[in-house]
């Protein structure tokens, strides 16, 4: 087990290293950031001075060497636009994104599991079929379009929901959260709904498929024959057996939600790290893009690591190799 963990850990570092190389070198071939920073009427001398100040006059390999050395110290360079540590900028925005992601996950779990259990338990019912079709529609919806429509209907036409931003924020143990204020919660709902639709549909289908398998099994038939309450059968016996694969697959789903948060944050002007990424792409703010990708890669790699561990932990049949 320990050996396996070490192996996975080594693998993690390797992946991050490869990502850092790809990201850094590829970014170096994109537009010249210096010309973005100097005024329109700057002379060549000013442009050169700016280039030296940003360290962009060094050869690429030297730039990567400096970058890697700093990376090990947790310093991914300063944002061209903000003149601040890029990694700090990302970390600063992280709570907003995580709040959104977590809230979306909660919404999808609270809706998808009961609906999935229902649809799996009574697959022949018309309502189940409707639920399944709706979930298919959920997967087919263009995410960004849903967000636009939500704003258009609830914020612009009905004016019952705020259209952008996070609302009131309170700070709790250094984390700035909006979920705990009434205003903040209200701001959170539309983006979270938009973000949760896809994962809700996926989760629902997964739960249903698992339920259908389990319901065929003997112990359920046995419990039924014994005359146990339907609710007890569904939630105590069946769901328990379904939940394990669902949770592990959901780990991967979190990664997708984080990725799609970039779109949601852009539409709702949600000040998270996804919006920072899109803004930085538009600004050619290379250090921030690099930092975002490395931070997100780190999150994903950790996530996969834990999902793998969990999987092996839960199901001892899995070969550790």
């Amino acid at each position: 087990m320990i050996k396996y963990i070490f192996k996975r850990f080594y693998h993690m570092i390797l992946v991050l290293f490869i990502v850092s190389i790809i990201v850094f070198f590829v970014m170096s071939f994109t537009g010249d950031p210096v010309l973005m920073l100097v005024p329109l009427d700057a002379t060549q001398a000013q442009i050169d001075a700016a280039r030296i100040e940003l360290g962009l006059d060094q050869p690429l390999l030297v730039q990567y060497g400096i970058f890697l050395k700093n990376l090990l110290r947790g310093d991914l360079g300063n944002s061209y636009a903000f003149k601040q540590s890029a990694i700090k900028l990302i970390i600063e925005r992280m709570p907003a994104t995580f709040e959104l992601v977590v809230f979306s996950i909660i919404i999808s779990i609270f809706l998808a599991i009961p609906l999935g259990v229902y649809a799996g338990a009574y697959p022949k019912k018309r309502s189940s079929k409707t639920i399944m079709l709706a979930s298919l529609l959920g997967i087919s919806l263009p995410n960004f379009w849903v967000g636009m429509m939500l704003i258009f209907i609830f914020a612009v036409q009905l004016q019952v929901m705020p259209s952008f931003g996070r609302g009131d924020i309170i700070e709790i143990v250094g984390l700035r959260l909006s979920i705990l204020t009434k205003d903040g919660l209200k701001h959170l709902i539309l983006p979270a709904v938009m973000l949760s639709i896809q994962s809700m549909a996926v989760l629902l289908r997964l739960t249903r498929a698992g339920m259908m398998e389990v319901m065929k099994q003997d112990f359920i038939k046995f419990a039924r024959a014994k005359g146990a309450l339907t609710r007890t059968i569904l939630f105590k016996h069946a769901l328990k057996n379904v939940l394990i694969p669902v949770i592990t697959v959901f780990g991967i789903q979190i990664g997708k939600i984080i990725a799609f948060a970039t779109v949601t944050e852009t539409i709702f002007a949600w000040p998270g790290m996804g919006k920072l990424l899109i803004d930085s792409i538009n600004r050619s703010d290379r250090p921030v893009i690099v930092a975002y990708l490395l931070v997100v890669s780190f999150i994903f790699v950790c996530l996969n690591f834990f999902v793998d561990l969990m999987y092996t932990f839960i199901d001892p049949r899995i070969d550790l190799r």
Binding site: I107, Y122, D183, V193
Partner: peptide, 24 residues
Amino acid sequence: MRSKYLLVFSLVSLLILSTGLICK
């Protein structure tokens, strides 16, 4: 019968999530 509760439960949780007040 029971199955209906599940649906109601789902809808209620959606409603709870979508309430809020306006601040001035």
